[in-house]
Nucleic acid binder design. Sequence first.
DNA 1: CTTCCTGCAAAGCATTTGCATCCAT
DNA 2: ATGGATGCAAATGCTTTGCAGGAAG
Lengths: 140, 140
Amino acid sequence: MSERPQPLRELLTGKGVRPTPRRLEVLEELAREGNDVTAQELWGRLRERDSGTGLATVYRTLSLLAEKGVVDVLSHHGGEQCYRLCGDGHHHHLVCTRCHRVVEVGECDLGGWLDDVASRHGFVATDHRVEIAGLCADCR
Amino acid sequence: MSERPQPLRELLTGKGVRPTPRRLEVLEELAREGNDVTAQELWGRLRERDSGTGLATVYRTLSLLAEKGVVDVLSHHGGEQCYRLCGDGHHHHLVCTRCHRVVEVGECDLGGWLDDVASRHGFVATDHRVEIAGLCADCR
DNA sequence: CTTCCTGCAAAGCATTTGCATCCAT
DNA sequence: ATGGATGCAAATGCTTTGCAGGAAG
């Protein structure tokens, strides 16, 4: 009677992470909320669902998932880290400043520009992060 | 017998911030280290110079300066915030992954690209942050 | 005299860690 | 049995706040 074929489990097994019930709960919660969540928020929601998951486990799981590249970690929230389930490849984020919706942006043809800017300062660019703030379709 | 004409003081007065000795010490320390520093690091350096400045004052001053736009706040350091004295206008950062040197990048002709990407997702872009990681001239 | 600044210590929060227990293999 | 996973509580580390003393206008 599961509503979906549990692709979430594979997200774990695919990375060699044992799919324990608690980890799946965390993952489900992340999937439920497409946007980014703090560890504390996520824990709160689990409690509302009467999950006995401990806060430490939430942190441990999120760290593990981040390490394995299953979730993105965003630091745009002051002292608190935000986690977000996301696609595999290179991508950036579009964040709505009003409702905080986050959309993944796959397109990234900045390669040339980056190399250009970097070399102009004697650098070799190896990585980059772009975060675009704005208003989403519903909020503008 | 001052070595420089104290342009730092004006950085404060210009924003309506009273240039107290402690604030100037913090500002001088930020100017001394062109790169980004954590509040704790900065406090440590002040102590080495036998400044009696308290940690709380360092935090209060940095917050104030950030609020007034005199310093940039970078969150790329895990739980700790990094502060950096920086120019006024719109700019981005080039960070050396080996020595952590930070260079300001004034050029930013991404306007068109940003609008394009944003509108493709129904957004209107209002702001953006770009952080380029790489190796600087000395480290590569 | 009044307001703002500061140092110190205590408090607050997010996150991590130690440890005993539990579970699955 | 054996090693990993987990809950709980204590510990950590950064940052903020309360408060009393001080300096500046």
